[in-house]
């Protein structure tokens, strides 16, 4: 049983959880359509849509041409006029081709029209490195989208949240961008049955602790939990926060934790400079939580580099468990 929802839970992969959310949406809401490249008989580049086309047909699971800009724009126009499209980018990198429709149109239409229309579009972005796909198929661009008022940006780290955030996005009247980490697609976890939502804008405390706060996003949450286990054995008790939503960011959960622990590490896969860590750090620095800091804040982000092909180099340019351990130990110096 799931404590939150009371629904029975069973183990699903992250990809299966997303598919189940889309299945529920397609079954219960005629307005929902899926759009994207090779999401039909192929099942999606990462097999996320799987066999949904067999169940719902090609009118609702729509293979688009390789036209990211046009496809995203069609999804925006459809959302403005009564449909609830879920648009899958094959790789988040390809969103660069569609930035016009996402940034100038989807994000701004409601404001530009003084609230006369809303754009309830959901876009899904397979993101992140670790697949050997090199620089144009491995980026973590969520911070770009987080910089745009009008968009909501989420990064589920668990199968349960992958389903719950997608269903929450479909309930949301505004455009929601979902960044899914490709390495997580095969990760298994307990997922409640039926319809439930994970609130957008709410972080989750994945491990309670008293000595330092690790704010993490997406796959980095799992690395932070791994590190926390080692740290606990060393007598350091970290609190691990899964940010879950990049925009709007859950200020209360982060600040409350920093007030408690007095130490902060922010770990994320996107390029470190001008990234999520900068925002989390500034949020703390601009608040009363700053007075509780006993040590400088540490940001662990991606290197100032494209993602390389060579597997050892690829690992080297994004934070790994040893990086988190080293940062945590340096912050804890003098504490134990």
């Amino acid at each position: 049983m799931n404590a939150q929802t009371g629904a029975a839970a069973r183990e699903l992969s992250y990809a299966e959880a997303i598919r189940e959310a889309m299945d529920i949406a397609l079954a219960t809401d005629e307005r929902v359509v899926l759009m994207g490249e090779d999401i039909g008989v192929y099942g999606g580049a990462f097999q996320v849509t799987g066999n949904l086309v067999e169940k719902y047909g090609t009118d609702r699971v729509i293979d688009t041409p390789i036209s990211e800009l046009g496809g995203a724009g069609v999804a925006v126009g459809a959302a403005m006029t009564g449909l609830r499209p879920i648009f899958e980018f094959q790789f988040s990198d390809f969103a660069t081709l569609a930035m016009e429709q996402i940034v100038n149109q989807a994000a701004k239409v409601r404001y530009m029209l003084g609230g006369a229309v809303s754009v309830p579009v959901v876009m899904r972005f397979p993101a992140g490195s670790g697949t050997g796909a090199a620089a144009q198929h491995s980026q973590s661009l969520e911070a770009w989208f987080g910089h745009v008022p009008g968009l909501k940006v989420v990064q589920p780290a668990t199968p349960e949240d992958a389903k719950g955030l997608l269903l929450a996005a479909l309930d949301d009247p505004d455009p929601v961008m979902i960044f899914e980490h490709k390495i997580l697609y095969k990760m298994k976890g307990m997922v409640p049955e039926g319809h439930y939502t994970t609130p957008i804008g709410k972080a989750a405390v994945r491990r309670e602790g008293t000595d330092l706060t690790i704010v993490s996003t997406s796959i980095m949450m799992h690395k932070a939990l791994d590190a926390a286990q080692t740290l606990a054995e060393e007598g350091i008790d970290p609190e691990v926060i899964d940010l879950r939503t990049v925009r709007p960011m859950d200020r209360d959960t982060v600040l409350a934790s920093v007030r408690k622990t007095g130490r902060l590490i922010c770990v994320y896969e996107g390029v470190k400079t001008l990234g999520i860590g900068a925002e989390v750090s500034a949020m703390v620095a601009e608040s009363d939580a700053f007075d509780f800091l006993d040590a400088p804040i540490i940001r662990l982000g991606g290197a100032e580099s494209p993602i390389p092909y060579n597997p050892e180099l690829e690992k080297a340019v994004v934070p790994q468990v040893p990086d988190i351990l080293e940062a945590a130990r340096s912050l804890a110096k003098g504490m134990i």
Binding site: R31, V33, D59, R60, L69, G70, G71, A72, G73, V74, A75, V76, G77, A78, A79, M80, T81, G82, L83, P85, E100, Q101, N104, Q105, V109, M112, L113, V117
Partner: peptide, 25 residues
């Protein structure tokens, strides 16, 4: 009228989306 647009060509895919809605619905 779904709106004027400050981006040249910006409304064209949106129009196709509106047509997709009309057809589906």
């Amino acid at each position: 009228n779904l709106g004027a647009n400050g981006i040249v060509g910006g409304g064209i895919p949106i129009a196709v989306g509106a047509a997709l809605s009309a057809k589906r619905l």
